[in-house]
């Protein structure tokens, strides 16, 4: 039997009840070839320290709840493997740019509030009755927004965005991508409303094209593209006001 391999996991902890600032805890744990960072944390919670707090659900990179800074980079803990981080130590911290609620759990209220504001649903361009049948779409129309619909709301891109860190009012990369997904949908009729958000102070003009958001996105959504394409759209809208026949 080969010796079980071990790796040291360092976690930035924050326990508000203790009334102290964040501090670092270290554990050395055995790991196997197929163990993710999430499983490492679960091992710690189950056998070493039950107070360690983190979010997770699907364990398959689809629910978007296990985002954290791993080695300083925003990643999904369930999709990051301990073997790739050997010999360690593996440094784990709550997602950057969000307030820490407890240990690896961040306060996502800001994100969720903005999510509601972008109207993440289709407002039918023309209401249809049941008898009129479904709203149809061609493959080409689908292709216009499909990649942006892959977002899992994991917020990794927000931790990669210094502009969001410096100014939390910024709508940010992921939600702009989602907004763009609905605005680019041929069935939707609410884009004028959503564009108000795009134009606003907190909209796309807060972006300085750092571009790291698209690098860290686990779903290749390319939020930086959504933001920058909307800068063009916003500028065109603004100049269009001066054309004859416009308001």
């Amino acid at each position: 039997m080969p010796e079980p391999r071990t790796i040291t996991v360092e976690v930035l902890r924050y326990q508000p009840a203790k009334g102290t600032n964040p501090y670092v805890d270290r554990w050395t744990i055995p790991y196997t070839e197929d163990m993710s960072v999430l499983q490492g944390l679960q091992y710690i919670k189950d056998t070493l320290d039950g107070s360690l707090t983190f979010r997770w659900s699907c364990r398959m990179a689809i629910c978007g709840s296990c985002g954290m800074m791993i080695g300083g980079v925003p990643k999904l803990a369930c999709r990051t493997f301990l073997r790739d981080l050997a010999p360690g130590p593996v440094r784990v911290e709550a997602l950057a740019h969000f307030p820490i609620e407890r240990d690896l759990v961040v306060d996502a209220e800001d994100f969720v509030g903005k999510l509601e504001r972008i109207k993440p649903w289709i407002e039918p361009r023309e209401p249809r009755t049941l008898e009129e049948g479904p709203y149809t779409q061609t493959p080409a129309q689908l292709a216009r927004y499909e990649s942006f619909s892959h977002c899992i709301n994991c917020m990794l891109c927000y931790s990669a965005c210094p502009q969001y860190g410096l100014n939390p009012d910024f709508l940010g990369p992921g939600l702009t991508a989602l907004l763009h997904r609905y605005n680019s949908d041929s069935r939707d009729g609410a884009s004028a409303e959503r564009m108000q958000l795009v134009h606003s102070e907190e909209g796309v003009w807060s972006c300085t094209a750092v571009g790291y958001c698209s690098e860290v996105c686990p779903k290749q959504v390319d939020p930086a593209n959504a933001v920058n394409v909307n800068k063009t759209a916003s500028a065109i809208d603004w100049f269009a006001r001066f054309l004859p026949g416009k308001r």
């Binding site: 508000p16 009840a17 964040p22 609620e101 210094p162």
Partner: peptide
């Protein structure tokens, strides 16, 4: 009552990641 979030400082943020250094 125990809800007291901790906000980390952004000081020196651009030194945190090589990507940010390239951006700067």
């Amino acid at each position: 009552a125990l809800r007291r979030t901790y906000v980390r400082s952004m000081d020196g943020w651009w030194r945190r990641d090589p990507f940010f250094i390239h951006y700067m």
